[in-house]
Amino acid sequence: MAHHHSARLAAIFWGMALLLALSVPAQAQPSGGSGTGNDKPVGSGGGDKGGYSAPAGRGGTDMAASGSAAADFEVWLSSSREGQRLTSVRERLIAIATPAIEAGVPFQVFSARIREAVAKGVAPDIIVQALEVDAGRWMWLAGVLRGADWPPARSAPDLYLSAASALRNGLMQQAVSDVVTFARSSGAPAEKAGAALTTAAAIVTVYRNGDSLPGILGNAAVLMIHSRLNVGQYAAVADMANRARAAGIDAGRFIAAMEASLGRGGTLADLERSLFG
């Protein structure tokens, strides 16, 4: 019996050892997964978001890669349904995109914005104007990221889109630069930086018509990325800003509450207490 017991124990031991051996690499898998946004057949990871191979932030240093990316954009513009609806402004779009792509901007940000605009039925001229402004913001960001191996190519388009959206909605360049620099130096996921920028932009939007200073609200992005909150909690901060504004709490006091709570490693509950008692 003792022999059988030891045999069972040995089997259990080896089984558990194998379980651990198999589990550890599984847990080490990045949560980012494949980069797809969802598991539906029409996912975000498909199409041109996943196809960018040249690292972002090396703008201008790899001319062959950027030249190829510019050519890829032209091919996309010629072959896609969206591009075919913009034949009247095709040359203008290429003229806007080419220098940006050569500066290190992933071409997928152009196709993503064009898809959105065409889906929304935006007039071609408006699309050109909007992309011209966006391209300037993207080129600025490419300059901030120049020489860095961050963000990973897979995440770069989302970061560029988030940054441009944040700037469009009133976030200061300094705040965007601070968030990106912090995320890059700390190795934070680019998606987190993008979400922090998006949330801060939403907070700015909440207070847009108030008497607040945009510079103060820019701190929101930095506080978000420094905080212990996970990305899933960011939206709650924007909702709290909305409640705070409705309760008469101005932007300065809101940011002070963020600093006193999230800025010191606090939680959403701490922020809520700081704001509403």
Partner: peptide, 19 residues
């Protein structure tokens, strides 16, 4: 239902959600 909405640059707005 959400306060997170941003100017889309095309004359409209989009909602945002962070997960």
């Amino acid at each position: 239902s959400t306060a997170s909405r941003l100017d889309d640059g095309f004359g409209g707005s989009s909602s945002t959600i962070s997960l």
